[in-house]
Simulated scan of single mutants.
Amino acid sequence: MSYPSVTLKKGEGRALKAGGLWVFDNEIAAVSPEVQNGQMISLLDFDGYPMGIGFYNNHSKITVRMMSRHADAVVDEAFLRRRVQAAWDYRKKTVDTASCRVIFGEADFLPGLVVDKFSDILVVQSLALGIDQMKETILRLLTEVLAADGITIRGIYERSDAKVRLQEGMERTKGFLSAPFDTKVEIVENGVRYIVDVQDGQKTGFFLDQKYNRLAIQKLCKGAKVLDCFTHTGSFALNAGIAGAKSVVGVDASQLAVDQATENARLNGLENTVRFQCCDVFSLLPELEQAGEKFDVIILDPPAFTKSRSSMKNAVKGYREINLRAMKLLKDGGYLATCSCSHFMNYELFTQTIGQAAKNVHKRLRQVEYRTQSPDHPILWAADESYYLKFYIFQVCDQY
Rank of each mutant, 00 (worst) to 15 (best):
K307A: 08
E287C: 11
R364Y: 05
M312T: 09
Q255C: 13
S340W: 00
K294E: 13
A261P: 03
D332N: 14
S386W: 10
T353L: 00
Q255A: 15
R366Q: 07
F305Y: 13
M327G: 04
T353N: 00
T351S: 14
Y347R: 15
N360P: 07
Q352Y: 09
F282Y: 15
M312A: 10
G355H: 09
A253W: 06
R325K: 11
S374M: 13
N314F: 02
L256A: 13
A382W: 09
S342H: 12
C279E: 15
L288P: 15
L336E: 01
S386K: 11
D280R: 03
G292I: 06
E293N: 15
L349P: 01
V274P: 01
I354C: 14
L330W: 10
G269V: 06
F282N: 05
R325D: 07
M345H: 02
L380D: 05
E321L: 03
A337R: 01
P375M: 08
V281F: 03
C278A: 14
I354N: 06
K317Q: 12
G318C: 10
A253M: 11
V258S: 01
A358D: 07
C339D: 04
Q352V: 13
S340D: 06
P303D: 08
T353P: 02
M345K: 01
E287G: 08
R371G: 06
P375D: 07
N314D: 14
P286E: 02
Y388K: 07
L267K: 10
L267T: 01
L389A: 05
F276H: 02
Y335C: 09
V297H: 09
